[in-house]
Design a protein around this nucleic acid. Structure first.
Lengths: 251, 251
DNA sequence: CCAGTTTGATGAACGGCGTTCACCATACCT
DNA sequence: AGGTATGGTGAACGCCGTTCATCAAACTGG
């Protein structure tokens, strides 16, 4: 685009336009920078000033593109759903479709630090998110779930998603505090927790001791799948609610 | 305790000890004041300075009893469980016990404004909360749930609790913003939302339109119960896992 | 009864925050 | 070439969490 530009001769330096070829500020660039800061500092360290610094720009410049920090957080929240497509409802495989939705959602939430906290703070009822909700409801309803169940199923699922990812975030934070990185200290931490739980007085905490292994497993994946399965099974139980005929059912 | 004290005569006013019979500051008094501020201002308006003002005390005085705001929030979180007793596990009625637990938990979360947000921020793994967790696990395990399920059941349940209460809080906030109070405007707001959903273009949002009535019901109680039921059913499905008619699922 | 110590509140200060606003440099239009 | 819109600047306001030197009252031992 631009020809090779020689560095400006010293004597014309003062006349040179300082902000010549600066990349213009846009909402997208701001959101990108916000994610950079978020991943580096966490949500508590995400300030308008830090974002501005990341862009080497004055704080007040941000407010030309973003009305307030709340709006910035909302834009970040919307990134969660960018290019997040649900499949056309297939009544034969609705359970797998739900599972895939949940797994993809969890993956997205874990992509950025503290993302679950941001997600929690925003109700998914803004206009441009309604299509996603519609697609989710489509899967439930065409699967044959009663309407009264479909109307809450999304809530149950998404609170589980957010809540689980939030807990994972707490773990990740605790890991970050201890200087070391890599999977080594992760394993060590889980082992420590497991040892702590296992060492509880057996008479007062028999069940915690018994489950200590499962509560502090090396990876959270299996726990996530199990919790997800509980919900899917609960939903599925409403299919044959009125016998094998699978009738749609009112209140 | 104290005899009737006459008001000090004016001329001795200057000699009078100003801080004589002042109630001493305690952690409990601070937490109480924090809840007062919380209910009045919401979590975003809950600042150390406001709490101090509520007690007509200098901000720095708080730090003699509470190491930081984080600790204060933790103390508030612990109030959630004060006198919160779970029954001895009864395998015959484990489902009702779980339901009661969830209902009581929701009620507690709704007692104070933004309480769900505070609850979300704290993992229930601090030492003094382990007994509660133990009691919950006791119910699951003595009911006969497999260990791998019991180990996540608490998570599923409590994320649903917190998440649902959080959403209710968002509604309550929106209601607070509109000046009016009482149940009148509540109804009106729900009606508005329902109308909005019902008025969506039917071709693009058939399911949302169809469920508009159920998504914006006058009270959230029924929705809560339904979501709770999904989870309870999901859990129950693991009881007769190896029984007749159901597909068994190992791993 | 007094001196000394401990206790616990005070108020000023520091640095950081979100947000606003008067100003100003550049880029475009006529 | 001059005028104007666009969009960034920097200082300021008021609030925040937290710290610290100061100080008054309350207990203590002699």
């Amino acid at each position: 685009m631009s020809q090779d530009a020689l560095p400006p001769t010293p004597w014309e330096k003062s006349r040179r336009r300082p902000a010549a070829a600066r990349v213009p500020l846009t909402r997208d660039r701001i959101v990108d920078a916000a994610f950079t800061v978020l991943d580096r500092e966490g949500l508590d360290g995400l300030s308008m000033r830090q974002v501005a610094a990341e862009l080497t720009v004055a704080v007040s410049a941000l407010y030309a593109h973003v009305s307030a920090k709340d709006e910035l957080l909302e834009l970040m929240y919307h990134r969660l759903f960018d290019g997040f497509e649900l499949p056309a409802p297939d009544p034969e495989h609705w359970q797998d479709q739900i599972r895939d939705y949940a797994r993809a959602g969890r993956a997205r939430l874990l992509e950025h630090r503290d993302m679950a906290r941001i997600s929690m703070a925003h109700a998914p009822f803004t206009a441009d998110l309604l299509p996603k909700l519609e697609q989710l409801l489509a899967i439930f309803r065409t699967a044959g779930l009663p309407d009264r169940i479909s109307a809450v199923a999304g809530d149950v699922l998404s609170t589980y998603l957010d809540g689980f990812a939030l807990e994972e975030g707490v773990w990740a934070d605790r890991l970050r505090e201890s200087d070391e990185d890599g999977t080594e200290s992760w394993k060590r931490q889980r082992a420590e927790m497991q040892a702590y739980l296992a060492a509880l007085p057996t008479d007062r905490f028999p069940h915690l001791v018994a489950l200590s292994g499962r509560m502090a497993e090396e990876t959270q994946d299996e726990r996530f799948e199990l919790g997800l399965e509980i919900i899917v099974r609960g939903l599925a139980s409403y299919l044959d609610d009125t016998g094998p005929g699978r009738s749609r059912d009112g209140s």
